[in-house]
Each structure stands twice: as C-alpha cells, then as structure tokens.
Amino acid sequence: MNILLWGVLPYVMFVVLVGGLIWRYRYDQFGWTTRSSQLYESRLLRIGSPIFHFGLLAVIAGHFFGLVIPKSWTEAVGMSEGLYHFNALLVGSIAGVGTLGGIIILIYRRRKTGPVFMATTNNDKLMYVVLVAAIIFGLWTTVASVFSNTHGITYRDTVSPWFRSLFILQPDIAAMAAAPLAFHMHTLVGMALFTIWPFTRLVHAFTAPLHYLFRPYIVYRSRDKGASVPARSGWSEVGTRDRDTRKR
C-alpha cells in the first residue's frame, strides 16, 4: 500500500501532469486561457483574486523552502529548529489563511453572481473542490506540524526527504510512511490537484507571461508566419457551454 501511494502514484501524477500539459499545449491552444469572469463582476474579484494569487505564490515559496532545502542546510547557516518553525508557522499560516480567504471570497462571488455562476462548468466545480481541499489540508499540516514537533518528528525528517528522493528515482517510502496523517492527506490531495491540473483552467498558471518583461512592445508578424492553423483536438467545444444548448 505504501509503495503504491508513495512510490508509484507520484510518478503517475508526474506523467499525467507533464504529458497532459504537452498534449494540451499542442492541441488546445485555443482553450488555454484564464477564462476570466471579470467582465461580469469586478468588485469582489478585485479583492479576492489578488489575495488568493499572492497568497498562493507565498505558499509555493514556502513549499520550496520546506521540501527542497534540507534541514542540514538551514542548521548550517545557524538557524535553530525553533526559529525555523516559528517562521514557517507564521509565514505559512498567513499565506495559507490568505489563500483560503481569497478563494472563499472567489467562490462566494462565483456562487452569488448570476452570470459568473452560469459560466461555471462542471470541470471548474471539480477543480474548486480539489483545490479547496488541498488548501485546507495544507493548513491542517501547518497546525499539525507544531504538535508533531513535540514528538520530535517533523515533516522535514519525513516528507521532505521523501520528496527529494523522488527526483533521484529512489523514493524513500519508509520516511513518508512515517509522517502523520495530515501530511498524507495533504500530499494525496495535492497529487490529485496536479493530476487534474492540465485539464482544468488552472493551466493558465503555466503560461504566466514573464517574458513580457523582456519582449519589445510592438510585435510585427508576417502574414505567412504562424498562419498554419493547427487542427483542433476536439477536446472541448469553444469556451463554456452555451446556456441555450445546455437547456435543450
């Protein structure tokens, strides 16, 4: 069981994520969009969306520190266990609560604003469930890490080594299996999130337009370049489904 969960699933997730992204990038460029609903409603979005997104960026940074940087490194630069955890807890919970608060505003808005709700697909709803679950379990782990600390096991001795070992293709299953339940749940839901990622609107994150900082302002393009229209995949109809067709 442990082998399946912590030795096989991560790789399955990885293959689906990368394969799905490549496949969608090649065949569904037209569907690759944020599908913003700001046109319908702007007031709540302007509050919720930045809180959520900036919170999420902080969360990602936090995961990077927690998972990638080994304990020995932070200790080597003289950061005590206590200080590290205080920091992680403080920053982590602020970021996590921000993300959760942001998404609660966004979901409230999505439910309560008629046009926005009508533009919500089943795909979106599934994605929201998994996303919210991942955030909630994530917050739970942040809290749990404080208490598990008292037993002398932290995720930095269990989850992080396992995570790093995945990359050298020798998953440290035992380490992960020893982690508390909250971490197991968070990791599983997280993997589910990454598995559905390429097939939801979340893909827009992978085309975050950082190259904007470097490209020239004016773009010239010759008519014959880029004019070869790639065949559509038939992966989905254009945009969200029409209300009329849905009724019929």
Binding site: I218, R221, S222
Partner: peptide
C-alpha cells in the same frame, strides 16, 4: 503580456 497581439508586416 502574452504578446498575442501583432501587427501584420504586409
């Protein structure tokens, strides 16, 4: 940001 808007050279 994406550079999706372009001016045709011709």
């Amino acid at each position: 940001p994406s550079g999706a808007i372009y001016k045709r050279v011709e």
